[in-house]
Design a protein around this nucleic acid. Structure first.
Lengths: 219, 219
DNA sequence: CTTCCATAGATTGTCTACAATTTTTTAAGT
DNA sequence: ACTTAAAAAATTGTAGACAATCTATGGAAG
């Protein structure tokens, strides 16, 4: 039997469904219906919805209800601005804490990505989330618990959601990989400052793509 | 009658009590007792506790219970590292968005602080939270919604909790004020880069104090 | 035809009771 | 006296019913 609680299960389940778009953005989430579909009562469901609200994947209005958040270009750009800075910080911190073994693991991730790219030349959907492995490893290595939970548990959910929905494969996976490799090299050489700079650039270029993507008229 | 929900009221109530130390760190929070004391049922209370857990002011263990988080020096230092970077970013963004009126307001905050300092020479408890006004104003002016909610709604609760509990008045309020003034000047001159640099230094010096405060043996 | 208000329906918020799990107590065995 | 195990107590997790609130429908007045 599961040691976890219903709330946890349902939360995870809804989280995945939302991120992968199985529950469409802006969907209204009716508690009674959902509870029935999921085979639980409203209590745990409400707690799960509350958690989703805290993670900003759902918006709740008192006495009205909950709905999945929509795609908001401006908000995503704001999110990327933050990632720029926090992941740069992660690089600086990681440099002082990563063991050689950690670096080897990180290198292995890149090797794996490279193979994917060679195989399915260009089009790599699986690498979608695989890309995150690289970032996650560095963040984890930072050893800063706030940083880890902020980036991995909160901000990144939104990034993943965006990627799934917009079917927005990176335009230039090869370039992204090269940027990763350069960051990796900097870490190898224990040059935190450089790694941070490169990471900042890396994310900024992703943001630039995002800004062009759904270009809108300047206000 | 209040438009808010019980969960909201209780959440705010518990939040204040925890931050101000009326509910001591590491206190066990028993649902039945708390609910009785607060005059509500366990349902809304549980949702409030869940929200507190999301904000990292409470830790919950399934089937065991919830307790207020304790003082963790290392964790606070990690938090300050993040503030350094995010508030620097806030400065850069704020520079491009602050109106002259906004700047006047910010200046007024500083004037007020100055008066406090002149009156109750040195010892300023009220300025405890007043200090945050300065930071909050800049953060708000950044216009980055993620930044605003991360700093104001999440991270700062922890900072406030620490300040209340440790009765850790800033040692050098005068110096802090001067640093604020310099940041303000940089913003006035629309020099975002400088403002960011000064903010980073400002928070870093606060962190340094923190590091000395409860000095522990290096591991 | 439009606007306003009242009523009915649907949905969320809250309470009480019950089930599952953990912790504490108690007692037996070594 | 100490360890182990079983039973009891306390506490959290879940379910279902009721109350409060919002939304939509329909009718009357202008």
């Amino acid at each position: 039997m599961e040691a976890r609680t219903q709330t946890d299960r349902i939360y995870q389940q809804l989280l995945d469904a939302i991120i992968q778009g199985q529950i469409a953005p802006l969907s209204r989430l009716r508690e009674s219906d959902l509870a029935r579909d999921l085979g639980i009562s409203r209590g745990p469901l409400r707690e799960a919805l509350g958690r989703l609200e805290s993670r900003r994947l759902v918006r709740k209005v008192p006495h009205v209800g909950a709905q999945v958040v929509g795609f908001d270009r401006a908000e995503l750009i704001e999110l990327y601005q933050i990632r720029e800075n926090l992941e740069a910080l992660a690089c600086e911190l990681a440099v002082t804490r990563m063991s050689d073994a950690d670096l080897d693991e990180l290198g292995a991730v890149l090797k794996r990505h490279e193979r994917y790219l060679d195989d399915r030349d260009g089009q790599f959907y699986i690498q979608q989330d695989g890309d995150l492995d690289f970032h996650f490893k560095i963040i984890q290595a930072s050893g800063n618990r706030w940083l880890i939970s902020l980036l991995c548990d909160e901000l990144y959910q939104r990034v993943r959601m965006f990627r799934y929905q917009s079917a927005n494969q990176r335009r230039r996976p090869r370039q992204a990989l090269e940027e990763h490799q350069r960051i990796y090299e900097a870490l190898r050489q224990r040059d935190g400052e450089l790694a941070a700079l490169l990471m900042k650039r890396h994310i900024r270029s992703a943001r630039a793509v995002l800004e062009q993507l759904t270009e809108e008229a300047p206000e």
